[in-house]
Simulated assay, not measured.
Amino acid sequence: MLRFRFSMADLGRVVVSDAPAIEVAASLDALGDAPRSVFMERWRTHALPRIPPSARRVVSVLRALPRTPPEILTDGCALPTEGPLWTALHAYRDACLGDVWQRVQAEKTRAVATVTGALIAHGVLAALGSLGPSVRWRGDHLEADHPKDADIDLAGRGLRLVPSVFWQTPQYTEHGIDRPTLTFPVGAAPGRADTVADPLVTLLGRTRADVLRATVTGAGTGEIARRIGVSAASVSEHATALRQAGLLHTARTGREVRHSPTPLGRRLITPGSIAPVSALAEKLATEAAGTA
């Protein structure tokens, strides 16, 4: 188990963000791990025979590495494109992850919105306590399930939190990156929304809910499109509808357009607002059934 020790400076430097390319590295581990869910089992059965010949050697080498390349943990929304390593990883991702990529990214977007909402509405300790059963706040420190047993003094460096679907156990690294980074598991699989109702999706529809959640820290149209795996035109269309409903604010600075939730929109994507959203979704469904 890892135990993270925070100073006051560290608590002020806790951030949550996505690193979409991390799922490529995480999925390489999932190829050899015992399936932890129906989704993982089905995905591995689907992916193993589809690894392109041009990527097999790189996949084997990367799976043997003790940690993730630091480039995977950058804030960029795509893999780097230069060099044979990245060419092979692109081929692997397209062949083995293409069918699930959009849903994986949407799941991670929801996780970022949930933790960021807790941070904004209730503070850093609430955010640290919202990371799931494998990462827990224990009075004066954060502990994460991990094969190693260690105390980690963050020493003013802060901590970056990154959600992962394919890594179903916490992962930690501080090598080659600016801020120590802890990945935390997101649900059992992106397909969990098929069996567990998401009230915001019931209310707004999946893509529109994902667009709203992706704006929780402010984001441009293209950035949102890359995060959730849809076109920029689709994001613009949904952003217009959300703006007309009073859930989204759009500001233009020069050629850049950035979207952020209004106070009402933030309430819908903040932990603690799920019950009201669920009740509203149920009310709308009842009214719709009554008029059918």
Rank of each mutant, 00 (worst) to 15 (best):
A144I: 03
G156E: 09
P180V: 00
L142F: 04
R192E: 15
P70I: 13
A113F: 01
A78W: 01
V216N: 06
D198K: 04
Q244Y: 05
M8H: 07
V162W: 10
A121K: 15
L182N: 11
G98A: 13
T250C: 14
D33R: 15
A292G: 13
F166N: 07
R179W: 01
G254L: 15
T291I: 09
K148M: 03
H249D: 09
T169A: 15
R255D: 10
P199N: 07
R213Y: 02
T45N: 15
T207P: 03
A188W: 13
D94C: 00
P199Y: 02
A121M: 14
K148L: 05
T173I: 02
A275P: 11
G158E: 11
A34Y: 14
A127M: 06
D18Q: 09
V58P: 03
L268A: 07
R3T: 14
P69S: 10
G222Q: 08
V135Q: 01
I224G: 02
C96K: 09
D99F: 06
G218C: 00
A188T: 14
E41I: 00
L280F: 03
R136N: 06
D151S: 06
R208G: 04
A189P: 10
C77S: 10
Q244G: 08
V59I: 13
P133G: 01
L159C: 03
T202G: 05
R157V: 05
Y92H: 11
G265A: 07
L79F: 11
A47N: 10
D10H: 11
A189V: 10
R103M: 07
G123N: 11
S164N: 03
P49F: 07
P185I: 01
K108I: 06
G32M: 03
P69T: 08
H90C: 12
P20N: 00
A155F: 00
L242Y: 02
A214E: 03
F184I: 04
P84Q: 13
G229N: 00
V257G: 08
L73V: 08
T169Y: 11
A189K: 11
V124N: 05
V16K: 04
L212Q: 09
F4H: 12
G176L: 01
F39H: 13
P147W: 08
G205Q: 10
E107F: 01
S236I: 04
G218I: 01
W137R: 11
V235G: 08
V100Q: 04
T270I: 06
R208V: 10
L89C: 04
R57C: 00
L89Q: 00
T181Y: 13
A91Y: 03
A241P: 04
V211Y: 00
P84W: 08
L159Q: 03
I177R: 07
L128H: 11
A289M: 09
V14C: 14
A30P: 10
S260I: 14
L48V: 15
G176T: 04
L131Q: 05
T109R: 12
R179P: 01
A188C: 13
A233M: 05
L31A: 12
T183Y: 03
P263D: 05
R42D: 15
R5A: 12
Y92R: 02
L73W: 12
V201A: 14
V112I: 15
A225Q: 05
Q105T: 09
V162C: 14
V100A: 04
D198R: 13
D149E: 14
T87N: 04
A118Y: 08
F39Y: 11
H249R: 07
G272L: 09
